[in-house]
């Protein structure tokens, strides 16, 4: 798309009034064009103040009462079933498998081959495999492997979750997920009773398997899920689940 066409569309984009196809074209264009990006940013800033144009109404007092009651009831439930304390959780920051420190990565790679049937997960991993013999036996004995399935949104996808011993990290191996445009990312979530915690981001190269480090103690969650989110990830999921694994 040319700048002139994009200029006709950024306002509608900022107002979320574009259909999917044009939305993607605008996103692809502004990712590469600083001028259109700047105009879009200004239009988004204008749209962001529109709530201030609305006639302000005081919500009925019962709304606050109802909300706080719900929160207190929820708190009481949680106190009966202690959850992970906040400080024990890591925020899922951008983190790819190959960016992890080598000793851990090498051990994980060795493990892939050691647990059998996983050699197909990618020749690119093989070059790392000479480096961590010592850790191997210990890891092998304490590893759990769980299957992950693509959802209706990605029926061709599958994967495996490798929980490495007692570590607060696991490895997610995925195949069959499409490559995303540069402004999107796959984001991994760990869920407990439907509450998601961000657990890492990853990308998929065309036609390749992908590996992602999942941060968090899987034993404290009941579901692992992958969604498509804007680049950089979101504080909370917004996209549909494309892959999931019961934990």
């Amino acid at each position: 798309m040319e700048c002139a066409q994009v200029a006709e569309l950024t306002a509608a984009y900022a107002l979320a009034a574009l259909p999917e196809g044009e939305r993607r074209e605008v996103e692809a264009h502004v990712a590469a064009c600083p001028e259109c990006r700047a105009r879009l940013a200004q239009e988004q800033a204008l749209v962001a103040v529109l709530p201030l144009a609305v006639e302000q109404r005081a919500p009925p007092a019962r709304l606050k009462t109802r909300l706080l009651q719900a929160a207190r009831a929820d708190l009481a439930t949680r106190e009966r079933q202690p959850d992970t304390p906040a400080h024990a959780r890591r925020r899922g920051g951008p983190r790819s498998f190959f960016a992890t420190p080598l000793p851990y990565a090498a051990a994980a790679v060795l493990l892939l081959f050691a647990v059998g049937g996983l050699a197909a997960w990618g020749a690119q991993l093989r070059s790392l495999n000479r480096q961590a013999d010592a850790e191997l036996a210990r890891l092998r004995s304490s590893t759990r492997i769980l299957a992950a399935q693509g959802t209706e949104a990605a029926p061709g996808a599958s994967g495996q979750v490798l929980q490495l011993g007692e570590q607060q990290r696991a490895l997610l191996l995925v195949r069959g997920l499409p490559t995303l445009p540069p402004d999107k990312t796959y984001q991994v979530w760990l869920l407990k009773d439907g509450k998601p915690v961000g657990a890492g981001l990853f990308q998929v190269e065309a036609g390749r398997e992908a590996a992602a480090v999942v941060t968090g103690d899987l034993s404290r969650y009941d579901l692992l899920a992958v969604t498509v989110e804007p680049a950089g990830g979101l504080p909370l999921p917004s996209g549909a689940i494309v892959l999931k694994a019961g934990l």
Binding site: L67, A71, G233
Partner: peptide
């Protein structure tokens, strides 16, 4: 009211993952 209750309650439930 339902929308606001839902939005704020979601924030409460999911505050751990709000970055």
């Amino acid at each position: 009211e339902d929308v606001v209750q839902e939005v704020f309650f979601n924030l409460w439930r999911q505050a751990q993952s709000f970055d």
